[in-house]
Every structure is written in C-alpha cells, then in structure tokens.
C-alpha cells in the first residue's frame, strides 16, 4: 500500500503561482486529476514525480520526500506528457534499457512482460520514430510498468489517442488500480475522468477545488446556478414574469448590455418556462445565451463552492 501525501504544497515560478496551498492524499486505486489547461496539473505531477521541488509544503511518498530522492523511483512509474523518448531506438531497446536502468535481475523478461501487457510486442522491433502517437504512449506505459511500481503517474495520457487506444489504456489503468496500485492520471476532460477514476481531485487555477467520486463532482457541476443573457422586446415585463417563478434566483437589468442577466437555479424548469412566459405575454425573444457554459466557468464555480 503506497500513499502519496501532498501537504499544504505551493509552487510558484517567479510571480506566477502555479499550485496554491494544496493538500491531498492519493491512495490505491485510480484517481483522476481534473482541471482546465493551465490549472497546475502538470506542476503537481512534476512535484509528485520528483522533478520539481515544492516552494512550500511537502510532497512525500509513504512519509519520504520525493524531491532529490532517487530511491523513490523504485516505487514510482512515470508516464510523462512530453514526447521525447530516444526515437532512434526500437521499442524493445527502449523498454529493455528502462528495465536495465532499474537494475532488475532479469531485464529481458521484465521488458517482454511489460510489452505484452501494453500489447506492443508485435511492433517492438520497429524504431520509435515510426510509431503513431498511441503506440508511443503504450511504449511509454511499458517503460513505466517494467519494474512493477506501486505508484503510476500519468500526465494527460489520453491526449491524441483514438477511441480504441483510449479504451485499451483505460482498461489497463483500471486493471492496475484493481491490483491495488496507486494510479494517478491528469486530464482536462470530465468524461474521460469519470469513465475511469473512482476518485476525482479537481484543480482550478492552482487551487484544490473539489474532491470525491464522480457522482459528487457531476452533481456539483450540474446543480450549480446557470447564468443566462436574454434580450427581448420588453425586458422589464419579462423580468417581472420570470422572478415570480421559483426557478430563478435573481434577475438584473443590464443597462450597458441592454439585456437581462438571469440566474437560474432550476435549470430544467427554467428552460421550459422562458419560451412559455414569452408567448403568454406576447414578448419576442431576441437573444437567449448561456453566459457561463465554458468548462473554465464550471470549474471556477467549483472553486467558490
């Protein structure tokens, strides 16, 4: 049983705070690190992988710091996001070299097993430079698995994979999690994370925004108030009719935009109510647009929650 412990950890680069006072424990099973691009996921993973010291706080593996502790790599398998990986070698040579660098007793057997696990033995004699993105990803996986690590860290592993490759990798990671390994992967796509991770950590703008299983995260995301921008032939009358219903929590007459800013708390009911009320009162709707549907705003809502 291996646990990654992140304790009041911050990391800044000059004036930019990439990770802001995050505390979390990553234990056995599959954990998804979810957040928009630039949220600090890679910075966190780099700290967990020992490639970046925290500015404050600590990042430890079973109580031992990871930064400048090369012995930690006996437990950690790393699948970096970057593509650089000795393209001039064959897949076999690459995985074998990784096994040798771990000083395994039988590196050839370990390399063979890892390549079979990721189903790449058919292409192992080809040079890595000839591989597709998905094949590279799988060989990276093999190199990370070769020493049977108890912790597996993957940075955006599904980027650029086709659906079949994605399914295969998900199956593989699920299997690793079921074996009791601590698997952590990052992604900016909610669907990806909820398909795979039993536990989700959400990071937004360097802060730890939410934590829990996907149902909890999903609910937080859909139950939040939705904001709409509406323009009509009679904004004031429409506002009066809408505020009478329990599906709205607040309406503002926005004079600059010449529009209504509406906050809906019952999303389903509001979308049915708006056209019905407009017809009843003979009001024409010119614009109805959600003003905060981007993933970023969903995440920033979670930060506030």
């Amino acid at each position: 049983m291996t646990t990654l412990h992140i304790d009041h950890t911050s990391r800044w680069f000059g004036n930019v705070v990439a990770v802001n006072d995050i505390t979390m424990d990553i234990g056995p099973g599959v954990t998804g690190l979810l957040g928009p691009n630039g949220a600090g996921k890679s910075t966190l993973i780099n700290m967990m992988g020992g490639f970046l010291p925290p500015s404050t706080g600590s990042v430890t593996l079973d109580g031992k710091p990871i930064w400048r502790n090369q012995e930690a790599y006996k437990e950690i398998g790393l699948v970096p996001e970057r593509e650089g990986m000795y393209d001039f070698l064959t897949g076999w040579d690459f995985v074998l070299a990784n096994a040798e660098l771990h000083k395994l007793p039988d590196p050839a057997a370990a390399a063979r097993e890892a390549l079979v696990t990721v189903e790449m033995e058919h292409a192992q004699e080809r040079k890595i430079s000839t591989y597709s993105k998905g094949m590279r990803q799988r060989v990276k996986m093999a190199s990370a698995l070769v020493h049977q690590p108890s912790v597996l860290l993957l940075d955006e592993p599904f980027n650029g994979m086709d659906p079949r490759q994605r399914m295969h990798l998900m199956q593989l990671l699920r299997q690793m999690g079921d074996q009791g390994r601590t698997v952590l992967f990052s992604s900016h796509i909610l669907e990806e994370v909820e398909q795979l991770a039993s536990h989700i950590e959400v990071v937004v703008a360097g802060r730890h925004a939410a934590s829990g299983d996907f149902r909890k995260i999903r609910r937080l995301m859909t139950d939040r108030p939705h904001r709409y921008l509406v323009r009509s032939s009679d904004d004031r009358r429409l506002a009066a009719a809408l505020i009478a219903d329990a599906s709205t929590a607040g309406i503002q007459l926005d004079w600059d935009e010449k529009a209504l800013q509406i906050q809906a708390i019952d999303f389903g009911r509001f979308t049915e109510l708006l056209p019905k009320l407009a017809r009843e009162h003979g009001i024409r709707l010119y614009t109805v647009s959600p003003s905060d549907e981007s993933l970023e705003s969903v995440f920033s809502y979670l930060v506030a929650a």
């Binding site: 090369q70 790599y73 950690i76 650089g84 990784n98 771990h102 190199s143």
Partner: peptide, 18 residues
C-alpha cells in the same frame, strides 16, 4: 539533446546515482 527533448526523464526517474 536529452534535456532539450525531455527524454532525460527516463534516466532520472530511476534509482540511479546522478
């Protein structure tokens, strides 16, 4: 080149003396 393209990770993420 290994530091430039990031492949040095595969050397460093090992229990090897620097």
């Amino acid at each position: 080149p290994e530091i430039d393209d990031g492949s040095v990770v595969y050397l460093l993420a090992k229990p090897l003396k620097r």
